[in-house]
Amino acid sequence: MGSRIVSFELCGREVEVLVSPMATLQSVLRSQLGYTGTKEGCRQGGCGSCTVLVDGEPMMSCLLPVEDVEGRRVTTIEGIAPVAGLAPIQQAFIEKNAFQCGYCTPGMVVLTKTLLDHHPSPSRDEIIDALGGNVCRCTGYAPIIEAIEAAAAGATTDAGRDAGDWPDPSGER
């Protein structure tokens, strides 16, 4: 009853999906489309784990009825990396060990990718301000901020490395 087909652009490809009324973008991504990189931390808009980009702007997908993104461009964590390798911000998160449990990481990466797209050289205060809605309960924010600074400075080493090659579990590089 009341279900309808919604179409939008998801990470560069057109998708059409039959949704029940007011299903959230988060639940449609995770349960119907298999895009589980978008996490579910609170469904209250309070943690940032479900951050996605809608037409390049960060939004909380847990608060967004999927009907509201009809015809729009949605980018999730699955669409951040280039075809081969990792985006510089992803590389920087790895190099700075900017995660422990990893649950907040997709939201952090999506948010900071668009921060750097909008604003290639943010100040430390601007970075902190941008991260205000994304909660990390393990690592603390210092390595995350360092990763963003490193990515902004172009200071990562291996951008472009094939993600499938990473890492060598022996510890040799």
Partner: peptide
């Protein structure tokens, strides 16, 4: 008020 993503909504 709130955060970047929430202010966008």
């Amino acid at each position: 008020t709130a955060s970047w993503s929430i202010r966008n909504m």
